[in-house]
């Protein structure tokens, strides 16, 4: 990573840290800010799977549910401390992801989309009737997180837990994608046969990608559970509709980029809020659909790298601009 990039990330983190107390947002908006970051974690996980490993998932809403209910169960019933429950939720969801990844080994493209869609629907159905675990229609009340005796009661205080976790996960992800695992995933995405010839165990990495992606989503699920005061399996965040929104986040923000995942998540979390005052109830959904189609049609050779290419262009533009300035000064 070069210095410029470092600095821009640090500036971003500073902004993310300082903005909420400065703006002093009302609860409902601070809630959305918390939610944006939680969804950003999901989007990063989904991007690892789709953007880097080239696999498709239409079932991430279900992973979110698995993480959320695991965490709720661990803290409420087994009285496990929040942070341990958080990690365990990630791990258990990761295992579920590996299990889903196994049948996925034999599938590609459209078939994988169908299978993961089926998974998404199935998990919601199972959770709806598994009332001893989920509380069913009457729901459950996940506890507010507690650490060293401090209770994170407000959305603002909880925001910082989520922010720190997001930063940690972004760093870990960044390290993963620029080393062996990341290269293997991308190689497999670009040419499975060449990847095999280069010694990449494609089955292993596909399963790993599912597990890793589910791990992130499980962490986000745990955070989501403790953000909500009250949770039922019918929550929109667990539905296929939300799985499509997750997909839209990375398509809009940029498939195959971490920063794109975050930007996409923020846009997709606030879009419904912004359009909620307009008379057309489902407008945000219509807009989302239209945008992702536009992105694809605009980049017919595969949006998978549209984000990276666009960034490239900007950087080149910027570089040229700089050169010109240098030239001018020299003259």
């Amino acid at each position: 990573m070069n210095a410029k990039k470092y600095i821009s990330w640090i500036v971003l983190i500073l902004i993310a840290t300082l903005i909420p107390p400065i703006l002093n947002l009302p609860g409902s908006l601070q809630y959305l800010l918390d939610l944006s970051l939680i969804y950003a974690i999901v989007a990063i996980g989904l991007n690892l799977l789709m953007g880097y490993a080239g696999q498709i998932s239409l079932g991430h809403g279900a992973f979110l549910a698995v993480g959320a209910y695991t965490s709720a169960y661990l803290t409420l019933t087994l009285h496990v401390p929040f942070f341990i429950a958080l990690i365990l939720s990630g791990l258990i969801t990761g295992i579920v992801g590996i299990l889903l990844g196994l049948p996925a080994l034999k599938l590609e493209g459209n078939y994988l989309a169908i299978a993961t869609l089926g998974f998404g629907v199935a998990v919601t159905q199972i959770f709806a009737i598994w009332t001893s675990f989920t509380g069913g229609f009457s729901g459950i009340k996940p506890l507010k997180p507690e650490l060293f005796g401090f209770k994170f009661n407000s959305y603002l205080s909880y925001y910082y837990i989520i922010l720190i976790l997001t930063i940690v996960l972004v760093i870990l992800t960044w390290n993963i994608i620029r080393t062996k695992v990341g290269r293997s995933l991308m190689a497999m995405r670009d040419s499975e046969i060449a990847a095999k010839a280069m010694g990449i165990n494609v089955s292993y990495y596909k399963t790993l990608a599912f597990g890793l992606s589910a791990f992130y989503t499980g962490i986000a699920g745990s955070l989501y559970a403790h953000l909500l005061g009250f949770m039922t399996p019918y929550d929109y965040a667990f539905s296929i509709g939300m799985s499509l929104n997750f997909l839209a986040m990375i398509v809009i923000g940029g498939i195959g980029t971490i920063s794109g995942s975050i930007i996409g998540a923020i846009i997709m979390t606030w879009l419904p809020q912004i359009t909620s005052n307009l008379p057309i109830k489902s407008l945000s959904q219509i807009i989302t659909g239209a945008i992702i189609i536009a992105v694809v049609i605009f980049y017919p050779n595969g949006i998978a790298y549209a984000g990276a290419r666009l960034k490239d262009k900007f950087e080149k533009l910027f570089a040229k601009h700089q050169e010109k300035i240098v030239v001018k000064i020299e003259k």
Binding site: R183, M186, D190, S191, A194
Partner: peptide, 12 residues
């Protein structure tokens, strides 16, 4: 090995 119809990782 190499491939007859170049099999590079295009987006790397």
């Amino acid at each position: 090995r190499t491939f007859q119809n170049v099999e590079l990782f295009k987006h790397m």
